[in-house]
């Protein structure tokens, strides 16, 4: 019994360690500047001044739109194109199938440090720097998504496909109308992993975007922090951080189980 109580105490300490900083961030962003310094989670006054400061100092609404637009486009492309390649690898016959699969596995092992600089050069040559294209196109396919789709589609019974083919359905119809509705788990997994990676990515936007009106959320907030625009106002830093964290935290609170399972499964394979 004592051991059990001790266990719960330890787990609750864990709750404080992992949860408290986020609660402090959200509460702090809503407190008057004077009161943020202390560790208390309660304040006499509710204040939106910090948010007002963020919205007037940096184009954060625009950055929010940019991030949403980029992350949703990337996620859609990765799911659609990834499932097409995954389907071809799992269910179709074509020359070079084995080689292609090995190639995809190989790309997953390349450290990004090698390709980063030449990819930037490519963006410059194509004239894509400071455009949405540079943020979307280079991440529109991932090896991991193809591998996950292929693995899932392999388990779809061949008889189902043959029946549809006899009825004269095209492969396109079979994939998007027949198999997609059966594939919700893998689609959700790929979508979550891709959206999260795209929303949180900051290195690549730092490299290809210099124009403030095209910056993504994490990039703009990072520059806000180091560029001194926050003018040591802790409240506006916390407000900016909250705006950056909130979409993912909200998505996470709805799809918590999916997030954890997706990350764990990709971790094991990665």
């Amino acid at each position: 019994m004592a051991a059990r109580t001790l266990k719960y105490i330890a787990l609750c300490v864990g709750l404080v360690v992992f949860g408290y900083p986020f609660i402090w961030m959200i509460v702090g962003s809503l407190k008057p500047e004077m009161e943020i310094g202390n560790l208390k989670l309660w304040s006499s006054l509710l204040s939106f001044n910090s948010y007002r400061a963020v919205f007037t100092k940096i184009p954060i609404a625009r950055a929010f739109f940019n991030s949403m637009f980029v992350s949703l486009s990337v996620t859609t492309l990765v799911v659609v194109l990834g499932s097409m390649v995954g389907y071809a690898l799992a269910k179709l016959r074509f020359v070079g199938k084995g080689v292609l699969y090995i190639l995809i596995l190989f790309t997953m092992m390349i450290p990004f440090q090698i390709t980063l600089i030449p990819q930037y050069v490519l963006m410059v040559k194509l004239g894509w720097t400071d455009t949405y294209l540079s943020l979307i196109v280079p991440s529109m396919m991932t090896g991991l998504s193809i591998v996950l789709f292929r693995q899932f589609f392999t388990s779809v019974p061949e008889a189902l496909l043959d029946a549809a083919r006899i009825d004269g359905c095209s492969e396109l119809y079979i994939l998007f109308r027949l198999i997609w509705p059966l594939s919700r788990p893998v689609i959700i997994t790929v979508a979550i992993l891709t959206f999260m990676a795209s929303w949180n990515d900051v290195l690549w936007p730092m490299i290809v975007v210099r124009d403030r009106s095209l910056m993504t959320m994490p990039q703009l907030v990072a520059i806000f922090v180091i560029g001194g625009e926050a003018e040591t106002q802790l409240g506006s830093l916390l407000a900016a951080a909250t705006l950056l964290a909130l979409p993912i935290i909200i998505a996470y609170s709805f799809f918590q189980r999916y997030f954890i399972e997706s990350m764990a499964s990709s971790g094991i394979k990665g």
């Binding site: 949180n200 907030v221 990072a222 951080a241 954890i260």
Partner: peptide, 17 residues
């Protein structure tokens, strides 16, 4: 779920905190 939360949040947020 709470222990997992820092994983999903941007590194920029974590760094600010």
């Amino acid at each position: 779920a709470v222990y997992f939360m820092p994983v999903v949040v941007s590194g920029v947020v974590v760094t600010i905190l």
